[in-house]
C-alpha cells in the first residue's frame, strides 16, 4: 500500500475552487514531484495535506489512516513534515533555536533531538558552522538548508518541500537538489513541489503535472522529461 494516497481532493479558498479533484499516490521511499505553472494548485495541495487548509471533499490517506480534517500539529506527529515556501525561518532566532523548534513535537526527548540534530548537521555541515548565528543573517541558500533541516528535526517519514529552489543561484539549486536526493536515500519519502521542472524531474522517480487545480499528466519522471507537452510548457523548449 502506498504511503500517501489522495483521492478526489477538492479545496476551496472562499469561493475559489483551487483543487478540482486531485488524485495522487506516493510510495514509500519515492521522490514524487508536483510541477506546474503559478496558480496550478501545487502549494495548495501541500497545505491541504499538512492540515493548514481543510479540503471540502476527498480523502487523504497516510499510512493507512485518513488524515483529512485533522489539525496540523497531529499530522506532524504522524510523520508528515512540511517545509513551507519562501524559507519561513525565524530570522531573529539562531540556527540552533530554529532547529529546536522543528523538534517541538518530540517534547523533552533530549537524546532523540540530539541524534536528529546530528543527522541534520551531517547533511548540512554549513549549518553547524553557523549554529549560533541569527537566521536572518544567513544567505539564501543557507536559509533554505535551515528550512529543510528544521523540517527534518521531527524525523518525518514524508517530507514535503515547497519550492526549495526559489530565489537561489543555479549552482546552489544543484547543491540543494543533491541534498534532497541524499535525504531520500537515507530513507525519507519526499513530495517535492517545484517550478524548476527540469531540476525536479531529474531527481524524482515520478511526477505529476498540475494545471488549474487538476492533474493533467502523470508518470515516471524520465518519461515526463521526454514528453512533448511538458517540454513545451515547462521546460522552455519551442
Amino acid at each position: 500500500m502506498a504511503l500517501l494516497e489522495i483521492e478526489n481532493l477538492h479545496t476551496y479558498y472562499g469561493y475559489v475552487h483551487a483543487l478540482k479533484g486531485i488524485n495522487l499516490t506516493v510510495e514509500e521511499g519515492e521522490i514524487v514531484t508536483l510541477i506546474g505553472a503559478n496558480g496550478a494548485g501545487k502549494t495548495t495541495t501541500l497545505r491541504t495535506i499538512s492540515g493548514l487548509i481543510r479540503p471540502r471533499e476527498g480523502r487523504i490517506v497516510f499510512d493507512g489512516q485518513e488524515i483529512q480534517g485533522m489539525p496540523a500539529h497531529k499530522i506532524v506527529q504522524m510523520g508528515i513534515c512540511h517545509a513551507p515556501e519562501g524559507r519561513q525561518i525565524f530570522s531573529t532566532l539562531t540556527v540552533m533555536e530554529n532547529l529546536n523548534m522543528g523538534a517541538y513535537t518530540l517534547g523533552g526527548d533530549k537524546e532523540t533531538i540530539e541524534e536528529n540534530r546530528r543527522r541534520v548537521f551531517d547533511l548540512f555541515p554549513r549549518l553547524e558552522e553557523r549554529k549560533n548565528q541569527l537566521g536572518g543573517t544567513l544567505s539564501g541558500g543557507e536559509q533554505q538548508m535551515l528550512t529543510i533541516g528544521r523540517a527534518l528535526m521531527s524525523r518525518p517519514r514524508l517530507l514535503m518541500l515547497d519550492e526549495p529552489s526559489l530565489g537561489l543561484a543555479p549552482l546552489l539549486v544543484k547543491t540543494i537538489f543533491e541534498i534532497i536526493k541524499e535525504i531520500n536515500q537515507r530513507g525519507v519519502t519526499i513530495l517535492l513541489v517545484e517550478q524548476n521542472a527540469r531540476a525536479a524531474l531529474k531527481i524524482a522517480h515520478r511526477g505529476y503535472v498540475l494545471e488549474t487545480g487538476r492533474v493533467v499528466l502523470s508518470g515516471p519522471a524520465q518519461e515526463l522529461l521526454q514528453d512533448e507537452r511538458v517540454r513545451k510548457a515547462y521546460l522552455g523548449e519551442r
Binding site: 493548514l52 496540523a72 500539529h73 506532524v76 513534515c81 519561513q88 525565524f90 523548534m101 517541538y104 528544521r150
Partner: peptide
C-alpha cells in the same frame, strides 16, 4: 514561535 510566524509554527507541529 507563534508570535514570529504562526503558519510556520503550525506547520512545525505546534498546537
Amino acid at each position: 514561535y507563534i508570535r514570529e510566524d504562526e503558519v510556520a509554527a503550525e506547520a512545525m507541529g505546534i498546537d
